[in-house]
């Protein structure tokens, strides 16, 4: 199976609000409200960590969810956000300038 890497886009506005994450695309002004699971994935999307590892290390220990199911849900989630241009997906680590540097998050 191919590896999936995810990185936050620089074009978004984002803020933690309680346990949730609010994100707005500067491209089309679409507003997203991420639940705590999705917010964890978003925060971990540094372009360097494979999605499977994010799910294994950040999601499964915190939420009572079966790893295979969690990964399938996560793949669907990142695919949806990528379609709106607020996450970048790649099969190798992401280093392009449109991804947000982790120190600024």
């Amino acid at each position: 199976m191919k590896e999936c890497y995810v990185a936050r886009s620089r074009t978004v506005a984002a803020r933690q609000l309680g346990e949730e994450m609010v994100i707005m695309s500067a491209v089309d002004s679409t507003l997203f409200n991420l639940n705590p699971v999705a917010a964890l994935i978003w925060q971990a999307a540094d372009g360097q960590t494979p999605l499977a590892k994010i799910v294994e290390e950040r999601i499964c220990p915190v939420f009572d969810v079966e790893p295979g199911e969690a990964l399938r849900d996560a793949e669907q989630f990142v695919s949806d956000l990528a379609a709106h241009g607020i996450l970048l997906l790649a099969e190798s680590p992401i280093v392009e300038s449109s991804a947000v540097a982790d120190k600024k998050s």
């Binding site: 609010v22 997203f32 409200n33």
Partner: peptide, 16 residues
């Protein structure tokens, strides 16, 4: 709307 939900949540949390 999502914006109304956002405002309501911010109000509840005391977030500017």
């Amino acid at each position: 709307s999502l914006m109304e939900q956002l405002n309501r949540k911010a109000l509840g949390l005391g977030v500017p």
